[in-house]
Computed example of a mutant assay.
Amino acid sequence: MARDKVRYALVGLGHIAQTAVLPGFVNAKNNSELVALVSGDEEKREKLTKKYQVEYSFDYSDYRKLLYSGLVDAVYISLPNHMHARFTVDALQAGVHVLCEKPLAMNVEDAKVMAQVSEVTGSKLMTAYRLHFQRANLKALEIARAGQIGDVRFFNSIFSMRVKEGNIRTDKRRGGGPLFDIGIYCINATRSFFGELPEQVFAFANQGFDKRSLEVDEMLSVVMKFSGGRMATFIVSFAGNHQAVYDVVGTTGCLRLENAYEYYNDMTLYYSKLSAPTRTYKYKKSDQFGPEIVYFSDCILNNKTPETNATEGVLDLMVIEAIMQSVKSRKPVNLTALSKTLHPTLKQAIHRPAVDNKPVRVHIENPSMD
C-alpha cells in the first residue's frame, strides 16, 4: 500500500480496549494511526475520541458504513467473544484487514470460515497473541528450542484470577468462562513449546462453587498428551488467588516464568540446569499491545503473512473444543495429528515502554476482585 501508516478503527471499547489497546496505539504511532472508534456507548465514543484525539466515531449500527467509507485500512476487534466472527467477516469482505482478539471465535467452524474469507479476499487476519512479541516468553522458547534444557518432556501451568460476580467473563452466552478467557494462554504456550497439537486431551471441570460460576465453569484441570510421550497440564480458575506461571521441564534442565501471561506486571524467568547455578532474567513491565499493532501494520505495509495468523487461532479452538468434549463425556478425546505449526522466535520481540496504569475509564470496571 502507498501509505506509510495503517489507518485503524478500534471496535469495542470495553476494559481491555480502554486500559491497554488505546494506550498501545500511542506506542504504535510510527506505522499505525488510530482514526476511528466503534462502540454502542455514546459517552464512551465522545470522551475517548477527545482523550486520544481520534477523528471519527461510529455506533455498531454504522459499522458496515465505516468499512466501506475508505477511512480505514484495518480494524482491531476488541469485542466480546461471541461477536468476533461476525464483525471480522464483515471487515474482511469489505477489503479491510483484521487484528482480532483471542479466541478468534466461539468454535472451530466459525474460525475456519474467518480464515477462508481472509484467504479469498486477500485481507489479512491476525489473532492477537500479544505474547508472541514479548521478550520474556520468547527467551524461554529460545532456550528450550536450542536444547539448553535437553529434550522438553513436560509443561505445567497455573492461571487464576478472582473474577467479579456479574462480569462479562461469567456470561456463557458471550463466550465467558476460564477456558476461553485465560485457558487459551496455557494452550497456546504449550503448543509454542511443543510445536504441534496434542494427540489427546482429558479434562475435569467444576461449576457452581459460588455465584460467579453458575453459568460457566469456575475451574478446569487439563491434561494433554503430545507425540513422543510428552505431557502438559494446566489449571485455570475464576475463583482462585491471582497466579500466572508456567514450568517447562526437560531432561537436563527446566524453565519457570512468573507472571507469564500478564500485561501489567514485571516478569521473572528462571533457567536451571543440572550442576549449574540458576540463572535469573528479569523483565520490567512493558506495553504488550503496541508491539502487536506495530507488527501487524508492518505485515500490511510490506505484504507479509503474520506468524500469529488465523490458523493459529483455529488450532487453539480445536484444543478448546476437545477439552469441552472431554469434560462432557468424562473420557479422553483424540485430536487429528497435524504437521508442525508456525512458532514465534526471539526475532519477533518488540519493546515499547509501559503505558499509563490509570488511563481515562468510561463505563468500565476491573474484571478482577484483586
Score class of each variant (00 low, 15 high):
residue 65 K to W: 00
residue 123 S to R: 11
residue 15 H to Y: 15
residue 331 K to A: 12
residue 283 Y to H: 11
residue 33 E to W: 01
residue 158 I to T: 15
residue 182 I to R: 00
residue 297 S to H: 04
residue 246 Y to F: 15
residue 89 V to Y: 01
residue 43 E to I: 07
residue 112 K to F: 00
residue 92 L to G: 07
residue 26 V to F: 04
residue 77 I to Y: 02
residue 50 K to P: 02
residue 98 V to E: 05
residue 74 A to W: 00
residue 241 N to R: 09
residue 11 V to R: 06
residue 253 G to L: 06
residue 9 A to W: 00
residue 66 L to W: 05
residue 363 H to M: 15
residue 319 V to A: 02
residue 101 E to Q: 10
residue 140 A to M: 10
residue 175 G to C: 04
residue 152 V to C: 12
residue 17 A to Q: 01
residue 12 G to V: 10
residue 213 S to A: 11
residue 325 Q to E: 15
residue 186 C to K: 06
residue 142 E to K: 15
residue 291 P to Q: 00
residue 330 R to F: 07
residue 54 V to Q: 00
residue 285 K to P: 00
residue 61 S to A: 12
residue 16 I to H: 07
residue 83 M to H: 11
residue 256 R to F: 01
residue 172 K to P: 00
residue 351 H to F: 14
residue 331 K to V: 00
residue 118 S to W: 08
residue 68 Y to H: 11
residue 158 I to L: 14
residue 280 T to D: 05
residue 25 F to A: 02
residue 167 N to W: 07
residue 233 T to N: 13
residue 234 F to T: 05
residue 196 E to N: 12
residue 226 F to K: 02
residue 362 V to Y: 08
residue 55 E to F: 05
residue 293 I to C: 06
residue 27 N to M: 13
residue 103 P to Y: 01
residue 237 S to C: 09
residue 221 S to C: 06
residue 337 A to R: 15
residue 69 S to K: 01
residue 194 F to Q: 10
residue 64 R to Y: 03
residue 366 N to D: 15
residue 314 V to D: 00
residue 42 E to R: 08
residue 249 V to E: 11
residue 312 E to G: 04
residue 291 P to F: 04
residue 198 P to Y: 12
residue 89 V to Q: 03
residue 259 N to A: 06
residue 238 F to E: 05
residue 68 Y to R: 09
residue 157 S to P: 12
residue 74 A to F: 03
residue 82 H to G: 00
residue 151 D to C: 02
residue 339 S to P: 00
residue 171 D to I: 13
residue 17 A to R: 00
residue 69 S to C: 07
residue 367 P to Q: 09
residue 60 Y to P: 05
residue 89 V to K: 09
residue 98 V to F: 08
residue 37 L to I: 07
residue 341 T to I: 15
residue 169 R to F: 14
residue 315 L to E: 06
residue 29 K to W: 01
residue 165 E to H: 13
residue 227 S to C: 10
residue 232 A to P: 08
residue 39 S to R: 06
residue 183 G to D: 09
residue 272 S to W: 05
residue 119 E to W: 03
residue 309 N to A: 03
residue 225 K to M: 06
residue 27 N to I: 11
residue 241 N to V: 11
residue 305 T to E: 13
residue 301 L to I: 09
residue 12 G to N: 01
residue 360 V to D: 04
residue 72 V to F: 04
residue 190 T to N: 03
residue 159 F to S: 11
residue 89 V to M: 03
residue 20 A to D: 07
residue 367 P to M: 08
residue 335 L to P: 06
residue 108 V to N: 03
residue 354 A to T: 13
residue 267 M to Q: 14
residue 178 P to N: 09
residue 299 C to S: 05
residue 357 N to E: 14
residue 336 T to N: 10
residue 205 A to D: 14
residue 294 V to T: 07
residue 84 H to I: 04
residue 328 K to G: 02
residue 134 Q to R: 08
residue 231 M to L: 14
residue 294 V to H: 03
residue 241 N to W: 01
